[in-house]
Write a protein that binds this DNA or RNA. Structure first.
Length: 598
RNA sequence: GCGCCCGUAGCUCAGUUGGAUAGAGCAGCGGACUUCUAAUCCGCAGGUCGCAGGUUCGAGCCCUGCCGGGCGUACCA
């Protein structure tokens, strides 16, 4: 009985939640029509509802008839007609017709759009359903900087793509567990700790510039007599649990975390010490990873190392590619750690889905890790493993992004430059703002631009870093979206509108610009779900850009405060308010703030 | 050599499980401000979707082979 009740509630939530998107309504209606026309086997067939490319073809189109005709051995236009004969969309469509080879074009009623936008306006979640029965526990592995190394532009990608995906998954109703897989272990810590010990007591001062500190240690390791030997001994001491060595190691970690946390806070990235599960955390599990692989019959000794040969991977000799889990000297590698971490996430954290946000160069590594997890039965088929690769950041000449002198671009410098450049634009455009306001806006706009530039193109591609383009007020940029929000706030300020008074206001969709905006608003939930599924943040960006663009069009064509009559004025205020909320929520999912003037 | 990724307008990018005439922005040209912020909007122009085959009623998208670029390919991560 209890189970029945819970099931019922989740169904109700789902139907109530997704009802705002015409695409879902049409998919359901067409599915029923197809089942009625061709039998129950076709109830699950996808009617292929899409936005129409051209307004003359209506608002949405169903493209299933052509494919269906082939299967049924009938004329596609006749198939379309049969679907129409059983189709009931009177509530939302004013006209449905067949065109071309068998497209079914749907012209929506503006009254339906108005009613749905009104429903959206009273929905805190803007139509995004929480589907309790589909909610998963999702572990998202992102950021993962290295201790005692400065964060650079490469970490920015993992950090903000992972942060966005975490936010989207959480908003879509999943239980998200963030995991910051800090690089705090490995042979390089020998030289780092040795360098730190030589420097004396004031660790904080010594590693305030982590990049210098690391480079200095590396130089001494390569050049200085005896230093490399001491470093190697220090590694052994660290691995052996020597307390004075561990003390220095912890110092390095603590100091590094301070840097990371500062960057996260400035960037508005939701990562705290609670999310840190560093490499060293898995040390105690590594021997059992190897042992259990052996028990599973997957372990092979090769050239003195313990390896596995996951199916489907070849090396440069075109032979099976080995993945080393234990070196010939007994040490472990990142493959071992990644296997241990995955087991921990699945067994201890109860993950249904594990998402790895890592650069594209590690595709083969994760391919082999995933295959091994499957082969060993550690990741059952019910657990989804997602590798979320991303490309490199390139400079203007399409070479990896570097400083003018060829050095690594520090993340913190990048952030400061974004704030400064945004500040310069704001001072020019809006000189009346107070210093405090300017500074705050510059930070929100600058960091927003920096993040949005990274998120707005398909992550798999390398992207070209360009300050002028990301800070431009035209085109697919964060400032453009933020400005649409500002314009709406400006209307409310000027009209002294209390948005609370807009509750329950009748929405009217009359002008073409109003219809374009209304249609766009209703698509938000579908986009959020699509991103939660595909893990492609740029789709959300594209949507928000289209929404902002639709609002700017509306703004030009449809006076709000000076509308012809009070009902129109109220309706347009309501439309503006839902737009503002959608922009704000959408940007929030991207980890980007809004301001009320800029 | 083998594997993965990328190739769309001069530049930077979109293009939803194959759908109608491939879309934006920038740059170029031409318009709209005693304004709800012109930080915006409207119009014009700009394309052999790397090349060649194939599958299909229909291909930027799927398959095969090439070309070009990037990355990976055993004891780093």
């Amino acid at each position: 009985m209890a189970v029945l009740c819970r099931h019922r509630i989740s169904i109700v939530v789902r139907i109530f939640g997704v009802i705002h998107d015409p695409q879902n309504r049409l998919t359901a209606a067409f599915g029923q029509a197809m089942a009625a026309a061709f039998g129950p086997d076709y109830a699950q067939a996808d009617p292929l509802i899409k936005l129409s490319a051209n307004p003359k073809f209506g608002d949405y189109q169903a493209n299933a008839a052509m494919g269906l005709a082939k299967k049924l051995g009938e004329n596609p236009r006749q198939v379309a007609q049969k679907i129409l004969d059983h189709l009931d969309v009177d509530e939302l469509a004013e006209k449905v017709d067949i065109a071309g080879p068998g497209f079914i074009n749907v012209h929506l009623k503006t009254t339906y759009l108005a009613q749905q936008v009104q429903a959206l306006a009273s929905d805190e979640r803007l139509g995004v359903a929480i589907e309790a029965d589909k909610a998963k526990t999702v572990v998202v592995d992102y950021s993962g900087p290295n201790v005692a190394k400065e964060m650079h532009v490469g970490h920015l990608r993992s950090t903000i793509i992972g942060d966005t995906l975490s936010r989207v998954l959480a908003f879509a109703g999943h239980r998200v567990i963030r995991q910051n897989h800090l690089g705090d272990w490995g042979t390089q810590f020998g030289m780092l700790i040795e360098n730190l010990l030589d420097a004396g007591v004031d660790a904080s001062a010594q590693i305030s510039d982590l990049e210098d500190f690391y480079r200095n240690a590396k130089q001494r390791f390569d050049a200085e007599e005896g230093f490399a030997d001491r470093a190697r001994k220090r590694v052994v001491a660290l691995q052996g649990g020597d307390e004075p060595t561990l003390e220095q190691w912890r110092l390095l970690i603590a100091e590094s975390k301070r840097h990371f946390n500062q960057a996260y806070e400035t960037l508005g990235v939701i990562l705290t010490d609670d999310d840190v599960r560093a490499e060293s955390f898995y040390n105690e599990f590594l021997p059992s990873v190897v042992e259990d692989l052996k028990q599973a019959g997957l372990l092979v000794e090769s050239q003195g190392a313990q390896v596995v040969f996951p199916d489907g991977f070849k090396n440069h000799e075109d032979e099976p590619q080995a993945m080393i889990v234990q070196k010939s000297d007994g040490g472990y590698l990142y493959a071992t750690t990644d296997l241990a971490a995955a087991r921990y996430r699945i067994e201890q954290l109860k993950a249904d889905r594990v998402v790895y946000v890592t650069d594209a160069r590690q595709a083969q590594h994760f391919g082999m890790v995933f295959q091994t997890l499957r082969d060993a039965g550690w990741a059952p088929p019910t657990v989804e493993l997602d590798y979320v690769p991303f490309g490199m950041v390139l400079g203007p000449n399409r070479k990896p992004f570097k400083t003018r002198t060829g050095g690594t671009v520090k993340l913190i410098d990048l952030i400061h430059e974004a704030q400064e450049r945004a500040g310069a634009v704001i001072r020019e455009k809006n000189p009346d703002l107070s210093d405090d306001e300017q500074k705050n806006i510059a930070s929100v706009v600058g960091i927003g631009a920096l993040k949005y530039a990274d998120l707005s193109s398909d992550r798999i591609k390398d992207y070209v870093f360009d300050w002028d383009r990301m800070l431009a007020l035209e085109g697919n940029t964060a400032p453009y979206l933020q400005n649409a929000y500002v314009r709406i706030q400006s209307i409310f300020r000027k009209g002294e509108v209390d948005v609370a008074s807009l509750d329950g206001v009748d929405v009217q969709v009359v002008e073409p610009a109003e219809k374009t905006l209304a249609l766009k608003l209703l698509q938000f939930a579908g986009v959020v779900d699509a991103v939660a599924l595909s893990l492609h943040p740029h789709r959300l960006c594209t949507y928000l850009y289209e929404l902002a663009s639709a609002y700017h069009g509306f703004y030009e064509k449809c006076p709000v405060l000076t509308a012809a009559d009070e009902a129109t004025r109220q309706s347009r205020l309501a439309l503006s308010h839902v737009t503002a909320r959608t922009l704000q929520q959408g940007l929030n999912l991207l980890g980007i703030d809004v301001v009320s003037r800029m």
